[in-house]
Design a protein around this nucleic acid. Structure first.
Lengths: 238, 238
DNA sequence: TAAAATTACTTGTAAATACAAGTGAAATAA
DNA sequence: TTATTTCACTTGTATTTACAAGTAATTTTA
């Protein structure tokens, strides 16, 4: 199964400390054991410990202070909608309701919001859906999602009303987001958006085209999000 | 001038190699000199060289292959304006020209684009500047930058025409971007933006308010960027 | 009592050394 | 000629050692 050997020590220490932070053994503000303490605990030398801490610091789990120690920062915040997690976590799930405009259905496609598709993606077709997201009962997001129809059994019959698409992909299909590309524009609302957002002519709308890459090689999710930023600006950290 | 001493060796090597990549001494696909060669050139030992290369690899300037060497990847695409590095690297420096609308000057401030300021920031005042960025001779970005006037000697007399603000902060003041927050909206161009972007009434414009945190605790850079996305969408990876 | 110095920690930098492991070309053997 | 082996070179991991520099509590001194 897992080959303990072959995995470098600094990596093991990193994984252990990281899990201790994500699981709450250490919480924000805590002081990590000193490097020398970690040395004796993990039976390695300081450069090895420091390599593990380097990575944790780089990823934002800890902040190090000369003379004081390593301070735990907790799980690093994502970049909200502008980064990994999708619209749901950008707002806070409480006030977000979802209306399915077009239920997940299988369609043909040849390109996805200006992103080119590879041969397998084109041949497989896509699962297409449209959703309107309301924040405090006001329509704010209108999004079109296209997912290659590769190895996603029973996907179209699932319920997306109150669940995050990404949660479902992770839980049932072991698909996790790794990164992606996005293009951002400001446009004026067309007839459809005027209707959905209940706004007048010439209303500015933020458009976001995204290609979201996953841990499955060659499997990307494509989405186009329109956002009425009148009351809610798109917020993110980086 | 700047104190050579005090700057760690691995940092100096990093800066040198980085500048060699960004300035085109090494181009994409090139093989960097081997670690041992770099040792003899820079008169340091391998761990020091490796620390510099670690950072270059981490930031995407190079990719390392055991047994082969370090391959130059060029200037990392990064998340462009949506992430760390600012507008300059979002487009590719070649086609970007900068017009200074308001030269860096010291002003009073009490808030920064809806971001609240702490007491020290308010008391210190800010360095204020406005710039218009042209991509292929067309005005695309209009940005207002406000930097707390804390320990930035001779800052207002520096030249920002063709240099990245962040490069200057890093090189001369050892200030590095660590992360930040941003708010994104779509608006319609006001009189000023219509004038700068040479667009008509009702033209949609993307507005980006950012608070950019640095390695100096409590020292943040605030910027407001307006972007005409007619021809150039804001592009980023994550 | 209050300021200053000491001290015992912490992380930061750097060298010297050793071996493991991957790569690719040159030398060797079939 | 072709397949194999060897070898020189690359980066990866890890230890040991040493000192610098920042922090904070303690001790000393005024």
């Amino acid at each position: 199964m897992e080959q303990d050997t072959n995995i470098p020590q600094h990596r093991k220490v990193y994984e252990i400390l990281r899990s201790h932070i994500t699981s709450g053994v250490f919480v924000e503000g805590d002081l990590l054991p000193s490097e020398n303490e970690l040395c004796t605990v993990h039976l390695v030398t300081r450069p090895t410990i420091r390599k593990a801490l380097d990575r944790l610091a780089n990823e934002g789990y800890i902040v190090r202070h000369q003379g004081k120690g390593s301070i735990v920062m907790g799980i690093p915040k994502g970049a909200g909608i502008l980064s990994l997690t999708g619209t749901t976590s950008a707002i806070g799930q409480d006030n977000l309701t979802t209306h399915i405009i077009i239920k997940p259905e299988i369609r043909n496609w040849s390109e996805a919001f200006t992103f080119p598709l590879n041969k397998l993606e084109v041949e497989s077709g896509c699962i297409y859906m449209e959703r309107l997201r309301l924040v405090n009962s006001k329509p704010v997001f209108y999004d079109i999602t296209m997912i290659p129809n590769i190895n996603l059994s029973r996907f179209t019959s699932r319920n997306f009303e109150n669940k995050s698409l990404f949660d479902i992909l992770r839980k049932y299909y072991h698909i996790e987001v790794r990164g992606g590309e996005q293009k951002l524009l400001a446009i004026v609302a067309d007839e459809r958006l005027k209707d959905y957002f209940k706004v007048g002519s010439g209303h500015p709308v933020l458009q976001l085209n995204r290609k979201i890459e996953t841990n499955r090689p060659g499997f990307s999710i494509y989405s186009q999000v329109f956002c009425n930023t009148d009351e809610y600006a798109l917020y993110g950290t980086f």
